[in-house]
Structure formats: structure tokens, C-alpha cells
Design a binder for these strands. Structure first.
Lengths: 221, 221, 221, 221
DNA sequence: GATGAATGAGTATTCATTCAT
DNA sequence: AATGAATGAATACTCATTCAT
């Protein structure tokens, strides 16, 4: 098991560390068996805790799942922010964010699986993922590069495209072509013509950070 | 409960009628409680059967869910075929199919709910839905109206857009604007510029059948 | 499946043939899965009949099991009688019967398995098997070759030895040495000294029929 | 219900005591209804526990049955060891063990019933019972009182004789004559002549402990 | 805070048995 | 006689949740 969130909690109090351990364990078990088939006892056991302990930290499995997806989303957002700190073009940020999000979720396979499943269970999760994009889209609109009205439905449509791409690649493995096509589809839905979309994706591809092994950006850094 | 599939089976043997009753009941219960929370006993009881009878017809809940989703998909496909028998333009067919599919699934709310949930549980279902579109897309390509390579990933992206739109409207109710935007997004992903997409959707909107109350096209006709 | 008892019933009326088919099927299923795990539906299906038909012939699974074990016991007895028609020494008859019984039950493996299981479920079966020996033991007593009082307990002890030997060889396969030791143990319990027992077994081994392939004696003859 | 194994576990932790209670209850229910007809819920209820608790201690009914038979076998072995601590002649030990085993199993009727049934379900149990005798038989061989090769088959034959005797007396009640005959049969199979066997049984009968009420040797002592 | 034994409600699943055809 | 759909009682088994230690 990756002890990702437990390590993040080092330095926090004991309560925080135990909580982190449960989340780490939950991500693995949810990824392996899916939410419904995962049992609280197993998650606790894998975290090295007794089942009773679980209830000192979470009300039920739903709360844990929400916390797990939230923790993942938060971490991905943190990585993206770091990656894109120097990017000012909204459109470029959208492309980089889309492709970096997919890469991260594929590199940490359990993260991807949990996100896909939670996305289905509660559109909430997708919204969260896409909401992250809202500001970049608004930036691009302000920069006159896009001409759309930004609302929840638009972000849901973008989220759906990204999640479908994530699901496919979790099943079949990373495919450069699908990454590019997904980014182009996102831009097309955002109102660019196919040509423009293609050009933007090409140019963003030159962004140096996209070439990095994204696992370098994880908590250990 | 709608006795849709039971009525379809009138004239069939007893076995077929009982099977139809179980599917009708299952669609309602799945729609109301979701797959996981639905219990076989309840489905059987609502169908007016004892729980044991269920097992004379289906191996388990999964098989029933697959059969239910299949029956719905089959019926929707039948309606669409009927609706569009006179349409020859591939692009028009795509627009009409997209919007008619959404309308049908919203009009028979349980159908929509079952499709959305099954779509998540097994991409299969989505694939099935989208696969229906494959021939129309290929027609449009042959007619030089679209320029894309048709593959599974493309259809999944389209399916994702449609399912997200379906989910939103199942939650908030039918919204003409979302129907139109969904159709446009589908065409954009298929490579039309926003302007072309908009024009095509406008023109297809004049197709007389789109104005019909689609419930008229169901089995009772 | 061996169609042993169905063939025996050729010439009988239809009722008898169906009954025979059920018994054939039951023997196979009982042998494969054991009495408890065997289901009436499966037995009927393997007999090529519907489950309802079963109840036209037997009250329940117990009755069928009794009929099956009875049919087997009857057939084995028939074979033994035929084999030993020319043997007059009681002791020799005991040795030949013991070893021929084991051989037959090993050669028709399902028979052996059914006998062993029924023997456990109802000592009845064992009694039946051993009861067959009673007259031979009494003959040997009358011939002054044995000196025991013949009662139910004695026959049960003999039956237990034979069934244990049968079970061992059903598990490990036929073993000449175990056949001989079983016969000697039977004779020892009947009051012969080890030396006498050994001598009798040696001499009976010369009985020509013991060399035969016992499958020749089955119903097709 | 006899609270035999629960009392044995006094002093152990709670887990051990609950386990003991389940075994006590199981022995009674198995004895009354047989393995197949016994239901886990009933066993738990009679132990004063909820059915769910059962699964904290045993995987399924088979595991419980094995544990029950094992506990009985262990206790009987303990009693026999105590009884025979001063006996040095292998042959005498065999006689005393055989008859004391039968007495114990008859005195604690449920034990006897469980042993008989488990013996049939899994020869294992019988082997275990007989395996106990192996060392005594080997001692007797070393003392030149017996002349046999000791192997699994021999012990199975002895076990079969003892179990058949046990079954008969569980049905009809204790019978001194059958005890003696069983011991003699055991010795005969072990290679003594009827005369020798009879003499040995007579002499062992004088062993003072055989006269005791064996219930005195149980855990309460 | 952590433990883990006990709980018991809830569900799937099997299968002997019935009976209208 | 045979069929096979329907029945429904019976039971194993899981697992979230509680609580005394």
C-alpha cells in the first residue's frame, strides 16, 4: 500500500495520522474491489487498525469515500497548481490541466479508479474535478481566446469527457493519442474549431512540464 | 408500475410473460433505489411473484440488470428507427437520434435512471447506446459532412456527453437549452465548427417528429 | 452414465423403464456428489426427465436412495449367486463372496460409493450386505469349519470390515494385498486362527472365477 | 446441555470461552439431529449467542464439526492416558483402551453419536481414534505379544470394528457381552487366536479401573 | 483513542414439492 | 404419465455498528 496520506500527516497529531492511514487503506481497497464490495473491517485491518477504530474517525463508508476522493482531488489540485504556476494563457492552462490530471490519475492507478467510481456514484466528484477548471476557463474567456458561457452544465460535459478518457486508459493503459484527442475534445466543446483545438494542443505539448515523470511531484517532494 | 415489457410479451408463452413482469418490476425498483439497494425479493414481490420464481428466470441480480438495460435499449432503438425512417442525412440523423434518445429516456424516467446507472456500472451499456450511433456517424462521413475516424473511443466520448446530459435533466427536469447544447457538443466533438453545429441543430429542430410527444411511439401503438 | 437399470427394465412397462432411468441417474449423482448434495432436479434432468416426473415414482430422495442401494445390492447378490453356484464349502463361499463383493463394487465405482455412503446413513445397508453372508456362515458352522454363534452383531462387525476395505480402495484404487487381508480379517473374526485363515484364503484364491473380469457378469450377459 | 468444554475454558480469555460454549452446543445439536439437519442458528442460540457470533469463531459448519470431534477425541485420549498410566503390557493396553473408549463414548452419549457420525463423514476421525492405538499396538509387537505389521489399513479395520460396536450400543444400550466380543475381535484381527484373545480379555477385565464409573474421570475431577 | 467480541438485521440462494396443463 | 412454472420455507453468511474493557 502506498502510505501517501499517512505520510502527509506525519507531524500532525495522532488522530490525523490514524485518519490518514484509513484513507490510504480505503483508496487501495476501493480501487481493488469497488465501493460496494469494500468492507469497513477490511479497510481497517489493512490500515493496521481494528474495526472499532474506524468509528472514531468516520460516520460510515460514505463519509470515508468522500474523504478519500476529496484527499485525492486535493492532492491532484496541489500538483497541478505547482506544475502550472508559470502558465498565464487560460487555454494553455486548460490543456495542461487536462492532460496532467489524466497522467496523474493514471500514474497513481488507485487514485484514478477511485475518482472514476466516485464520479459515477456522486456527480459531485466530477463537478469537483471540473470545478477546478472553472477559473482557467474564465481566464481564457477574459483573454478573448474562448467564447462560451461558463456554467455547471458546461463543466459537467467537460468532466464527462475526461472521466470517460480516464476509464478507457485505466482499462487499456496510457495512450498518447487518447490524451491528445481528449484535450482536443475539451477545447472543441469549449468552442474552438477543430483546427484551433489541434494547434493549441500541439503548442501546449511543448510545455516542458508535460514531459516530466509526474510521480516526481508527489508528496515525497 | 408500467407493465411495458409484460405487455410486449402478451402472446408469448407463460415463461416469457413472467420474465417480462420481472423486468418491468426491476426497472422500477432499480430506478427508485438503485441497483445495490434493490433486493431481489422486493422485485419479485412487486412483480406479483415469489422470490423463488426469480431464480427460474435469472441467475442473479446482475443478469436481471443486464436484461433490463438490454430491453430498454432495444425498445429505444426500435422507437428511434421508426422515428427516423425517412431521414437520410447522417448529420441530421445524429441530431435527431441524440435528442430523441434523451427525450425518450426522460419521458420514461425509470428508463433513464436505469440507463444512467448501468452506464456507470458497465461501460458496456454506454457502448451499446453509442454503438447505435456508429452507423449514422459513418453515413455522415460517407456523405462528406463529417471528417473523423470512427472508433470505440469516439463513441465513448459521445456517450459520456449524452449520459451526463441525461443525468442532469433527470435531476433538474427537461430543459430545451440543454438538449440543444448537448446536440451541439456532440457535433463539435465530431469535428464541426461551433457555427456549423449550431446551424445543423437549428435545421434538424424543424424535423416534425421532434415535436411529437414521444410517448406516442411506445409499444401501445 | 451407465444405463444399467434402465436396460434391465427393457421389456418391462414404461413405468418400469422410467423408474430404472431415475435409479441409474441417481446412482451416478449420489456417487459424484453424495446424498446430501444431490438434488432431485439434477437427478431427473440427467435421467432426461423433468423434475415433476420424479414424484410419480418416488416419495422423496430417501426412498430413491433406498431403491438405488437396493437395486445395487440385488444385482451384486445376483452376480455372486451365479459366480458361486458350484461352491459347497461354506468357508470358501465366504472368502469368494467377500472378495467378489469388493471387486464388483470397485469395478462399478459408483456402486461402491453409493454402498459406502448408504452404509453410513443407515446401518440397514450394511446389514443387507452382510445378511447375504449369513447363510454361508451358517453353512460353514454346520460343516464344522467354524465355531461361532451367528447373530446381527457378528454380521455388523463383518460388514464394517468390508466397508472399511471398500472405502480405502475407492480412495486409493484396487490393491490385491488389501483384498487378501480383508478376507483374512473376516475369517479371523469368524474364529479361525491366523494360520487357518491364511490357508483358506490361499486355497480359495485358486477358485477359477476369482480370476475373471467381473464386469463380464453384468446385465449385458 | 453439558457445559463441558466451556468449563474447560474457564481461565482462558473470553474468546476461548465463547468457542467452548459453541462446541458444547454443537455436540448436543449434532448428536440430536445429525450434522446435516443441525442449523448454525440453532447451535448459536443454544450456546446463548447470536448467529453472527458463530462466524467470529468458525468458518462454517464443517470447521465446527471438526473442532467438536477433535475436542472430544482429545478429551477421551486424555482420560485414557490417565486411566492406563500404570499399564505396561501392550496387549492389555489395547484391551483396556478399546473397552474404556467405548464406555466413555457410551457414558457421554452425545460424544459417541458425534464420533460415529464424523467417522462416517471423514475417515479422518476414525483414523484419529485408531491412531491413538498405534503406539499400544507397536508396544505389543515390540513385546513379542503380537506379530503384525502396523499400517493405516490395519488401524482402519480396528476403527471400523470399534465404531460398529459403538453404533450398535448407542442404539440398544450398553451390553457387557458386546464389549467383550469387540475386544476379542480387535485382538483376533491383530493376530491372536480366539483362545488367546479370550484369555487376554478375561485377564484385562480384572484391571481395577475398568470397573470404575468413567464419568468420574471427566473434567470436573 | 484503540480494541475486538458480540450483535442481529438483512439478503441471496437453494430445492423439495405442488399442480394446472 | 410427463411437464415445468411457481412456490415459499429454510438457512447460510455478511457486515455495519455498538460497547465494555
Amino acid at each position: 500500500m502506498e502510505t501517501y496520506f499517512r505520510r502527509l500527516a506525519i507531524g500532525e497529531n495522532k488522530r490525523g495520522r490514524t485518519r490518514g492511514a484509513l484513507i490510504d487503506s480505503a483508496i487501495d481497497v476501493f480501487a481493488e474491489k469497488g465501493f460496494e464490495e469494500a468492507s469497513i473491517s477490511e479497510i481497517a485491518a489493512i490500515a493496521g487498525l481494528s474495526n472499532g477504530t474506524f468509528y472514531n474517525h468516520f460516520k460510515d463508508k460514505n463519509e470515508l469515500a468522500a474523504a478519500s476522493a476529496g484527499a485525492i482531488a486535493f492532492e491532484i489540485a496541489r500538483c497541478l497548481d505547482e506544475l502550472m504556476s508559470d502558465l498565464e494563457s487560460g487555454v494553455s492552462r486548460i490543456v495542461v490541466a487536462t492532460s496532467a490530471f489524466l497522467r496523474l490519475a493514471l500514474q497513481h492507478e488507485p487514485w484514478g479508479k477511485v475518482l472514476v467510481e466516485q464520479f459515477q456514484r456522486r456527480p459531485v466528484a466530477a463537478a469537483a474535478a471540473a470545478r477546478y477548471m472553472r477559473s482557467d476557463v474564465e481566464t481564457a474567456v477574459a483573454q478573448r481566446d474562448l467564447d462560451v458561457t461558463v456554467d455547471g452544465f458546461l463543466l459537467e460535459q467537460l468532466g464527462a469527457l475526461m472521466m470517460a478518457a480516464l476509464r478507457r486508459q485505466l482499462a487499456d493503459g496510457y495512450q498518447e493519442a487518447l490524451m491528445r484527442r481528449t484535450c482536443e475534445n475539451v477545447l472543441r466543446v469549449l468552442g474552438l474549431t477543430p483546427k484551433q483545438a489541434s494547434r493549441e494542443v500541439q503548442s501546449a505539448a511543448r510545455h516542458p512540464l508535460l514531459g516530466l515523470d509526474l510521480s516526481l511531484v508527489d508528496a515525497s517532494s
